[in-house]
């Protein structure tokens, strides 16, 4: 098993984990967004509540969710390790900053990631923690017994302009992280190809705008229609 240890302690091996966990998170966000779009349906939150109930009781979904926590933590911890290692490898900076054709996001991935991590903690505190501890939540009954009124919790949080703004900021930061991260993850895996790389880069930029924008519509919609 020494080969495995060698691989995971090598520079490329660590980036390999960053890339795979990043791609997993990219896929997760698509599912998360599709589910959350039910917040837009005008049924007083029924579809969203039933969906939330399903997601939090289904064994398969809960297993994937556990994996998701592990991947986020692995991505964040290794990302921070890379940051310090890279800082040390650079030593000191140049007196004159180079004006060259490189993207700002690519040079600030760890800072962007750090903000996203804070965002995730805030987000889990708003919903996951409250649902798990049954604190400050209300219940509804659609005929199949009482379930958590997740929709009401969302409305409570998003009616607060400060929380609403925090969500929007978090999503803008996410957009920057993905603007570089999406295509970068493929390059890290060595998946570079004359025919496909331009497509990956294009899809990456579309994803980096459309997915955070899709999420951002939700707090804005609730803030302006429900409060």
């Amino acid at each position: 098993m020494k080969w495995l240890a060698n691989f995971f302690t090598s520079s490329i091996g660590r980036k390999f984990i960053m890339s795979l966990t990043g791609i997993f998170l990219i896929l997760f966000l698509i599912v998360h967004l599709i589910g959350n779009l039910q917040l837009l349906s005008s049924d007083g939150g029924r579809a969203f509540n039933e969906y939330t109930e399903f997601m939090s009781t289904n064994a398969l979904i809960q297993t994937i969710a556990k994996g998701n926590y592990v991947f986020i933590l692995a991505h964040a911890i290794i990302g921070i390790m890379l940051y310090f290692k890279n800082k040390a490898a650079k030593g000191s900076k140049y007196a004159v900053a180079a004006k060259n054709d490189t993207s700002w996001a690519s040079k600030n991935m760890a800072i962007l990631g750090g903000i996203i991590f804070a965002f995730i903690l805030m987000h889990m505190g708003h919903f996951w923690l409250k649902f798990k501890t049954n604190s400050g939540v209300s219940y509804v009954d659609y005929g199949d017994g009482q379930i958590i009124d997740a929709y009401a919790s969302v409305v409570t949080v998003m009616s607060n302009p400060i929380w609403m703004a925090c969500y929007i900021i978090g999503l803008i930061v996410l957009a920057f992280h993905l603007w570089h991260g999406f295509a970068s993850a493929f390059q890290t895996l060595g998946l570079r190809h004359k025919k496909y790389t331009p497509i990956i880069e294009g899809v990456g930029k579309i994803y980096a705008i459309v997915v955070p924008l899709g999420f951002a519509i939700l707090p804005l919609y609730i803030f302006f229609t429900q409060s």
Binding site: S11, I12, N86, A88, A89, S106, K107, Q187
Partner: peptide, 11 residues
């Protein structure tokens, strides 16, 4: 040698 990791910045 202590070189850093590649972030695909492309500088």
């Amino acid at each position: 040698e202590g070189f850093g990791f590649c972030s695909n910045i492309r500088a």
